[in-house]
Amino acid sequence: MAGYHKRVDTGEADPNALNPDGTPVCRVRLPKKWNNEQFARAETMMGANHIRVQCIDGVSRMGRIKGKIKKRQWIREGDTVIIVPWSIQDDKCDIIYRYLKPQTDWLRKNRYI
């Protein structure tokens, strides 16, 4: 894999690795289609761990921040996230992942969003 450098001493990925064009290596998680995951953009903070999101399929849903993310990351308006729509109520979803700025730029550059 181009740009993937292993550290000799520990065997883990080098966080300072660069691509041949000089840009930093960016690892990005993509939505799993088999799990009904999709991209969305956080629009409005509603309070109490709820966010109004605009999904890639054109539907505006009320998103609930899962506990795993709630304790570790802050989600702000304008962030790109991965959501899973509820099977019972299509206008609600769970937010399961938040992208950082370099990851969002990579997704745009490679035309995922």
Results as ranks from 00 to 15, higher is better:
W34I: 12
F39V: 01
I82R: 03
C93R: 00
R52A: 09
P24A: 05
L107N: 10
R52E: 14
W86S: 15
E37C: 04
R76L: 12
V8E: 14
K70I: 01
V59D: 10
R61K: 10
K66P: 00
R52K: 15
C55A: 13
V28K: 05
R98K: 13
I96D: 04
I51C: 04
G3C: 04
C55M: 06
V25C: 09
T44G: 00
G67Q: 03
Q54F: 09
Y99W: 02
G58N: 08
D14K: 06
R98N: 10
W74N: 14
I51H: 03
L30D: 02
M62N: 14
V53Q: 01
E77N: 14
I65P: 10
A48R: 11
Q73W: 10
W34T: 14
R27W: 11
V81E: 01
D21I: 07
E12Y: 12
D21Q: 05
N16A: 12
D57C: 07
W106F: 14
N36S: 11
V84N: 02
G63W: 04
K33D: 11
D105Q: 12
C26T: 15
R64Q: 11
K66R: 15
K32E: 14
Y4P: 00
K70S: 07
V28Q: 05
M45D: 05
I51V: 15
N110A: 03
I83F: 01
K6A: 11
V81L: 03
F39W: 05
I75E: 03
V59E: 11
I75V: 15
Y99C: 00
E43Q: 10
Y97M: 01
I95R: 01
C26N: 12
K68N: 13
K33I: 09
T23M: 03
D21P: 05
K6H: 10
V28E: 05
